Computed example of a mutant assay.
Amino acid sequence: MRPKPVKPKGGQESVWDYPRPPKLEEVTKTIEVYFNGVLLVRSARTYRVLETSHPPVYYIPQDDVAMEYLVPSDRTTYCEWKGRGRYFSVQVGDRMEQDAAWYYSDPIGRFGPIKNYLAFYAHKMDKCLVDGEVVTPQPGNFYGGWITKDVVGPFKGVEGSFGW
């Protein structure tokens, strides 16, 4: 059963107005990711994926990621819209977070522009920011959306949202 969407205020978007199938959108906002005292990402050349009931997922070019801290993982998943997902763990010093970032090496159709771009789980990082605003991770720790003050829900991932 679809929940009642929160009505957006000026400058906000409702995730219930995002399309399904999802769309890809270029973003020029500055994206930053920090882990164990290291800035892993600073980029203003990203994309975001917008899908009904989900906060945006940001995809970052590997050129803007400190790749020396990423360790390839054996984990793979499959997205009906984007294809086979592959993962990296993040290790900085003695601290490691398993399967903290993912990418598509051969994305399907209109998602071609995010080939090999990385997305990070905000709940696995110390801090993720969009234009200086610290994001809130999408609930449930399964999806990788980033919630900012510009986006209203309710968001898939909360208890009881399996059938949305």
Rank of each mutant, 00 (worst) to 15 (best):
A44D: 14
T136P: 03
A122I: 13
R2K: 15
P61E: 10
Y121H: 05
M96V: 14
A122N: 09
F142T: 15
Y18K: 08
V71P: 08
R84P: 00
N36Q: 12
N116E: 14
V134T: 15
A122K: 03
R2T: 09
L70W: 06
P107K: 02
L129M: 15
D74I: 14
E80T: 10
K29W: 12
N141W: 04
S14Q: 02
M96A: 14
Y58N: 00
M67K: 07
V130Q: 12
A101V: 06
R95T: 13
P61M: 06
S73W: 04
L39G: 06
E159W: 10
K124P: 12
G160W: 05
I60Y: 02
Y117F: 15
G157E: 10
V152E: 05
K4Y: 09
Q12A: 13
W102V: 07
K7S: 04
T148H: 03
P113D: 12
Y104E: 05
G93P: 10
I31Y: 00
T148V: 11
E13V: 03
V152F: 03
L50W: 05
A100Y: 04
Y78Q: 02
S14Y: 01
L50S: 03
V27D: 13
I60Q: 09
L118T: 06
E80F: 14
P139S: 08
E26R: 15
V71A: 00
G157K: 03
R86W: 04
L40S: 06
G160S: 05
T46H: 00
V27Q: 12
F35W: 09
G109S: 14
C79L: 07
G145Y: 10
P55Y: 08
V158D: 07
K9N: 12
H123Y: 14
G140M: 13
V92Q: 08
L70C: 07
Q62N: 00
T46Q: 01
G144H: 08
W102A: 06
P113Y: 03
V41W: 03
R20V: 09
R84E: 12
K115F: 04
E133Q: 13
Y121F: 15
Q62M: 07
T136Y: 08
G132I: 08
Q98R: 15
G83H: 07
Y18Q: 06
D74N: 13
C128R: 01
P21V: 05
K9E: 14
W81K: 00
R84T: 12
V41S: 01
P139G: 11
N36Y: 11
P19A: 02
G163A: 14
P61T: 06
K9S: 11
P8D: 05
E80G: 12
Y78P: 04
E51F: 00
P3W: 06
E32M: 11
W81L: 10
V71N: 00
Y87R: 08
Y121I: 10
P56S: 09
A119L: 05
K82W: 01
V90N: 09
A100M: 01
Q98D: 13
G145I: 14
D94M: 10
S161F: 09
N141Y: 09
T46I: 00
E26T: 10
